[in-house]
Simulated assay, not measured.
Amino acid sequence: MYAGNCPVCGRNDQCQKVSAIHAAGTARARGYTYDHRRRRHTTTVSQTALAARLSPPVLHSDVTGAVRAVMMLALGLFAHLCVGAMIHDSGDALAAAVFAPLWLSVWFIVPSALVLTVNLLRSRRLNADLPRRRAIWQVWNTLYFCARDDVAFAPGGRPFHPSQLPGFMQTTTGPFTDLVRV
């Protein structure tokens, strides 16, 4: 329980840390599903509406798309080399061995190169913005929520509605200018 008082009602019996509400309202379950006799790992995340509204800022980029793109790129290059080696072994010219398998490998190489480029640009943008997001993360860890008044606030700061929190994550304007120091 919060030692201070809510800036709206002046009481503290319904005040709780935003991080605690988010943790209590978020459930993650890992398990397995069977699809065509193959066991696959699954992860399910469920959240209460309040936990979703009070979600923390994203600190690190998700690299799974980039990893999948690199794997597709490697698969496309491997397919190109294998088909090219088979054509070259059959006695055709080297130019035919290089250009003939393009119809197969282009379906892997072009989409994976596009996905990889988008993921690298997104990661670069997120890394450039990391100091601001770290500062916002520190502020998020100090926020409290009053269930009686449905407001979030930082100790000593102005109250705001939880629906304003995503805007706080994107910019440092509005009621949050005095909270974030980047």
Rank of each mutant, 00 (worst) to 15 (best):
S55V: 08
R37P: 10
A24P: 11
S19E: 05
L50Y: 00
R53W: 14
D35N: 04
S19T: 08
K17E: 02
L54G: 01
S46T: 11
A23N: 07
V18K: 00
A24F: 05
T42N: 02
S19H: 12
L59F: 10
V45P: 00
K17R: 07
T43I: 05
R28S: 12
S55K: 07
V45E: 07
Q14F: 10
T33K: 06
P56N: 07
H36L: 03
P57W: 09
A49E: 12
A29L: 11
T26Y: 02
C15A: 15
Y32N: 04
L59M: 10
A52Q: 09
R30V: 14
A23E: 09
S55N: 04
A51E: 03
T26K: 08
D13K: 15
R39G: 08
I21Y: 01
C15W: 12
D35R: 02
N12K: 15
G31F: 06
L59I: 03
T33I: 11
Y34G: 15
R28W: 05
T48N: 00
V18R: 01
H22C: 06
D35K: 04
L54Y: 01
G31R: 08
S61E: 14
R28M: 10
A20P: 02
R30G: 04
A51N: 13
Q47G: 14
R30T: 07
Q47C: 09
T42I: 10
T42P: 01
R40T: 03
A23T: 07
N12M: 15
R37M: 03
G31L: 05
H36G: 12
Q16R: 09
Q14K: 08
G25D: 01
R38N: 12
L59W: 13
A23G: 12
S19R: 15
T44Q: 10
R28V: 11
P57K: 08
T43P: 00
H22L: 06
T48L: 02
G25Q: 00
N12V: 08
L50K: 00
A52R: 02
R30S: 14
T33C: 11
Q16P: 11
R37L: 06
Q47Y: 10
I21N: 00
G31Y: 10
A23K: 08
I21H: 01
H36S: 07
A27R: 13
G31P: 08
P57L: 15
A52N: 12
D13F: 14
A20M: 02
V18Q: 00
A51M: 09
T48M: 03
T44D: 03
L50E: 00
D13S: 02
Q16W: 09
H60D: 05
Q47S: 14
A29S: 07
A52L: 05
D35F: 13
C15F: 06
I21V: 15
S46F: 08
A20L: 09
Y34P: 09
H60N: 15
I21S: 01
A49P: 06
H22K: 13
H22N: 13
H36R: 07
P56R: 10
S61N: 03
V58R: 12
L54D: 01
Y32L: 08
R39Q: 07
T42Y: 04
L59N: 00
A29N: 11
R39D: 13
G31E: 03
D13E: 09
A52T: 12
R38V: 05
A49W: 11
Q14R: 14
A51S: 07
R53A: 05
R38Y: 09
K17Y: 09
G31C: 11
G25F: 02
R53S: 04
Q47I: 15
H60P: 15
Q47K: 05
S55Y: 09
R38M: 11
T48D: 01
R38K: 03
